[in-house]
Amino acid sequence: MKRCAFLSMDNLDDFEVYDELLYEPLKNRGWEVDEVSWRNEETDWDQYDAVIIRTPWDYQDAPKAFIEVLKDIDASSAILENSLDTVKWNIDKRYLQDLHRDGIEIVPTLWKDEFHKEQLPSFFDELETDEIVVKPTISAGADNTYWIKQKNQSEYLEELAEVFEDRPFLVQPFMQNIVEEGEFSVFFFGDTYSHTILKTPKTDDFRVQEEHGGRLNKVEPEKSLLTIARKTLNNITPLPLYTRADYVRTAKNSFALMELELIEPSLYFNMDPESPERFADVFDEWMNKRLTGTT
């Protein structure tokens, strides 16, 4: 029996997690799975054949420490997925600049190194909108993410100044289709398309995560969405074990990339009953090739 660690956090009681749906399919393929907190300093990573980053949903609180743990795993005999280089690239949302240069449409974005109160009014002018979203370039789960309207911007000045005093952040126009239609998440395991879900926020909110009241529905992706998702995947090197790409429909009926989730995305195995088996197939083939040195 081969051993695999699912890299997690100390306590997931406040989160919706579906990775347990993988345990039986992986066991049937000869894999024993342990859930291990990335903060457990006593873990011997050499005891595992593979370590898969799954639910360390507090890494944004200590990103440097998180990367150091991944370095330790990468230096062990275990295979780390997604890879250390992938995580280093994907952990800061400035990776969106790279994808944009490669021809992937993204939501218009201003990139800032620190916040100054006098800047706030200019954000609305530069983006030609009366509603904006401000969030850190390193964040997860909508932490420190603000939906600000031009008419009430003064209410946020002090908090923004405190949160982003020495922390890079980005500013985007609020995309109305997030609340009117929702955010599409497209999933790939390796280069195999798996499933697509539509996440919609609760009334008077913009956060689509379940923990914030977001609602989920499995959908069949439009051909244009699947095409741009595949194009996005083709711009990632090396190919990740798992990819979640989040898109919003624009006013021109195109799909703009919101986030490319390659570190610790929920893969929503609960939304597609065939997805656990699909992941297990890809994972087993992927790891066997790595372990035998055939790829």
Results as ranks from 00 to 15, higher is better:
Thr55Asp: 05
Thr55Gly: 07
Pro56Leu: 08
Pro56Ile: 06
Trp57Lys: 15
Asp58Ser: 14
Gln60Ile: 12
Ala62Met: 04
Lys64Leu: 13
Phe66Arg: 02
Ile67Gln: 01
Glu68His: 12
Glu68Ala: 12
Leu70Phe: 02
Leu70Val: 04
Lys71Met: 06
Lys71Cys: 03
Lys71Gln: 08
Asp72Gly: 01
Asp72Asn: 08
Asp72Lys: 13
Ile73Gln: 02
Ile73Asn: 02
Asp74Gly: 15
Ala75Pro: 01
Ser76Ala: 10
Ser76Arg: 05
Ser76Asn: 11
Ser77Asp: 11
Ser77Thr: 15
Ser77Lys: 15
Ala78Gly: 05
Leu80Met: 06
Leu80Lys: 00
Leu80Ile: 08
Glu81Ile: 00
Glu81Gln: 13
Asn82His: 03
Asn82Leu: 00
Ser83Gly: 14
Ser83Arg: 12
Leu84Tyr: 14
Asp85Ser: 13
Val87Arg: 00
Lys88Pro: 01
Lys88Gly: 03
Trp89Val: 06
Trp89Glu: 15
Trp89Ser: 14
Trp89Asp: 11
Trp89His: 14
Asn90Cys: 04
Asn90Lys: 07
Asn90Ala: 08
Ile91Ala: 11
Ile91Tyr: 04
Ile91His: 05
Asp92Thr: 03
Lys93His: 02
Lys93Cys: 12
Lys93Val: 06
Arg94Ser: 13
Tyr95Val: 11
Tyr95Met: 10
Gln97Phe: 00
Gln97Glu: 13
Asp98Ile: 11
Leu99Pro: 01
His100Leu: 09
His100Lys: 09
Asp102Ala: 10
Gly103Asp: 05
Ile104Phe: 07
Glu105Tyr: 07
Ile106Cys: 12
Val107Cys: 08
Pro108Trp: 14
Thr109Arg: 00
Thr109Glu: 02
Leu110Asp: 07
Leu110Val: 14
Leu110Glu: 09
Leu110Ser: 05
Trp111Cys: 13
Lys112Arg: 14
Asp113His: 05
Asp113Tyr: 02
Glu114Phe: 00
Glu114Ala: 06
Phe115Arg: 10
Lys117Thr: 12
Glu118Ser: 12
Gln119Thr: 05
Pro121Gln: 11
Ser122Met: 14
Phe123Tyr: 15
Phe124Val: 05
Glu126Thr: 09
Leu127Tyr: 13
Thr129Phe: 09
Asp130Thr: 06
Asp130Gln: 09
Glu131Asn: 03
Glu131His: 06
Ile132Phe: 09
Val134Ser: 00
Val134Phe: 02
Lys135His: 10
Lys135Tyr: 07
Lys135Ile: 11
Pro136His: 13
Thr137His: 04
Thr137Asp: 11
Thr137Ser: 12
Thr137Phe: 04
Ile138Val: 14
Ile138Cys: 04
Ala140Trp: 04
Ala140His: 09
Gly141Ile: 06
Gly141Ser: 11
Gly141Arg: 08
Ala142Val: 09
Asp143Val: 15
Asp143Lys: 15
Asn144Gly: 03
Asn144Lys: 14
Tyr146Glu: 02
Tyr146Ala: 01
Tyr146Cys: 06
Tyr146Pro: 00
Ile148Ala: 00
Gln150Trp: 00
Lys151Ala: 05
Lys151Gln: 05
Asn152Met: 02
Gln153Asp: 00
Glu155Pro: 02
Leu157Gln: 05
Leu157Trp: 14
Leu157Lys: 10
Glu158Arg: 03
Leu160Pro: 02
Ala161Tyr: 09
Val163Asp: 13
Val163Lys: 08
Phe164Tyr: 15
